[in-house]
Design a protein around this nucleic acid. Structure first.
Lengths: 342, 342
DNA sequence: TTGTATGCGTTATCAC
DNA sequence: GTGATAACGCATACAA
């Protein structure tokens, strides 16, 4: 274990001053004789020299790191988002600090603190919904904050990138209605989440358009973590007049709900038509292949990174950005026309 | 956008010197009068002061960041690994820089360069298999390198954490043989990967034990990315004497293979028994529920983080660590007893 | 074209 | 208990 060479070691070995080495390191920052440059580069290679990021960051604020604060990377949706965000960031020479909140305010608060200490230039996050003061502080500090997938209503200044939740849920519900279903259930995220709310709103809209009376018993909220989704599914199936169709709009709970339906021996789509918000390759492999609402993760990632880096680019657009990308309804085999069995 | 207060601003506002503030910041580094401490804390809160990590790192080498260099986070296996690694690291106050290689040497090389520049204390990686010199350099620099899931044979000094690939494949194959199968196919990772090799070796061992003659036609390698897995599956089904059972040991290609089988209308397990290396919740939801080799991701993550941080803990164990954790064969419904239809 | 000196924000060493 | 001050590694005016 040798200790790291510094810019001074390089300078000495090359017989020049540190300033020259620095100029070689940052082309364009000043003139360097071609011969000198060659020699210095040579020495750097031999010594295995690498400039230390921490020292560089100390001089200028570092637009070189970005925080990605997600609820949970084991959720395939967030995993794919992380994957795309990382790729997108790397293509711009930006590094990504990955953090998770487990949907826990307290953890979120701690993560935000370290993000502040690191002076990241931007944060892409799925907020829990609390820590309002900290989010504000972050913005005041000049950190570009971008909420992705969800947002916080009481923080109307923060940029948001998400799918059009309202329209997605509306389209899914409308499809079911068009297949003759009149008892359509929906399992969505917590009522406190914007995502959950918007999807429910779209659902209601579709019902209205189809001339269907909303029934609060058919609307279930499930927490992002835990067995809530399964419980909601069971409850839904046990009401007096159970649904013949179901929209699972809480992405995080999709497998949990399906597991419960499977264990209950519910025939899909014979007894229950199903549409899920999910984009795992597995949805196509199931029997029947699931009709899904597919979120354009690439676009979410690209827009998020772009916004999170927008202060870096100098284009400090003063007004807030809200980007809603369209989700795609992919029809497969889990939706059937309602059999009138009266 | 206000600019960030520094330790000097705090000192001035509190009417003390920076040294005192520093002591308040790092308890135990020196005495501070209780009254003073209270006042300083107060001021810090009011000013919204946060010590800057970059400056701290400049003084000491930073055992505060860890690099996680994965092939691909959209692969659920790696995603869950990332999730656990991040949690594990956070619980120790360590941050994680997430990077992906897309199985590309060149990208890997670039990522390693930035990891060096950041002076991360440790790196957990799924190496592509090249960049040998850089991996060595990293170790010489005192960076703790841990390969997870795979390794590089020509780098015998690097710590490795993985499942027991040999035993896992052996057990899976043995289970199929025990069900009467005599034509057992296997699709594994590239022959260049240790993972792929070990699994094939375990497979061969099981055949031998069962008194079965290995047939090279039944052994297929598939690249981690792209349609290779599907092609391998198709090829396997079209040989003269096709297999009646299949082990899909290339985790990354599991869905691709299943998709192909599904499209080919292969009945599982009627015509083909299947065991896959995969631990997605979806495997249980399929019809039939898949018999799987379940990788103990929590353990992989925990051990990886521990090793990656071992230099920090002062216990610089000089000898190399190779940790192999047992994988679990979970029997479900995709394996059937061979029907003798002669 | 190159070298010198200074500062970035923090911690540690020493006096007071 | 507290306060100056010197590093840490790098980039950059400014001088040479």
């Amino acid at each position: 274990m040798q200790k790291q060479p510094t810019i001074r070691d390089v300078a000495q070995a090359a017989g020049v001053s540190v300033a020259v080495v620095s100029r070689v390191l940052n082309p364009g920052s000043g003139p360097v004789a071609a011969a000198t440059r060659g020699r210095v580069n040579e020495v750097m290679k031999n010594l295995g020299y690498h400039p230390r990021t921490a020292a560089r960051e100390l001089k200028y604020g570092p637009p070189t790191t970005l925080g990605l604060l997600l609820a949970d990377v084991s959720n395939p949706f967030f995993a794919r988002l992380a994957d795309r965000v990382v790729q997108e960031a790397h293509s711009r020479g930006i590094q990504v600090l990955l953090m998770t909140t487990q949907e826990d305010d307290q953890l979120e608060s701690e993560r935000l603190a370290t993000l502040i200490e690191r002076r990241v230039s931007g944060i892409i996050a799925t907020p829990t919904g609390n820590n309002l003061a900290t989010w504000k502080q972050l913005q005041d500090l000049g950190t570009e904050v971008v909420f992705v997938d969800r947002s916080i209503p009481s923080l109307p200044e923060v940029d948001v990138v998400s799918i059009d939740n309202f329209e997605s849920a509306r389209a899914a519900t409308a499809l079911l209605a068009a297949h003759g279903h009149r008892r359509i259930g929906i399992i969505s995220g917590p009522a406190s989440s914007t995502t959950g709310r918007d999807r429910i709103a779209g659902y209601r809209q579709a019902l209205e358009t189809a001339g269907l009376e909303p029934d609060e018993l058919l609307i279930r909220h499930a927490a992002f973590r835990g067995p809530a989704g399964g419980d909601a599914a069971s409850a839904l199936l046990n009401i007096e007049e159970p649904p013949t169709a179901l929209v699972v709009a809480n992405t995080a709970q999709v497998t949990e709900v399906l597991r419960r339906l499977s264990h209950a021996g519910i025939d899909i789509p014979g007894r229950l038509s199903v549409i899920v918000f999910e984009d795992s390759p597995w949805t196509e492999l199931m029997t029947p292949a699931l009709t899904i609402v597919k979120q354009p993760i690439d676009l979410l990632a690209r827009h998020s990174v772009q916004l999170a880096l927008s202060n870096t680019q100098g284009k400090t657009s003063e007004k807030r950005n809200v980007i809603r990308v369209a989700a795609e309804l992919v029809e497969r085999s889990s939706v059937a026309r309602l059999q009138l069995s009266k």
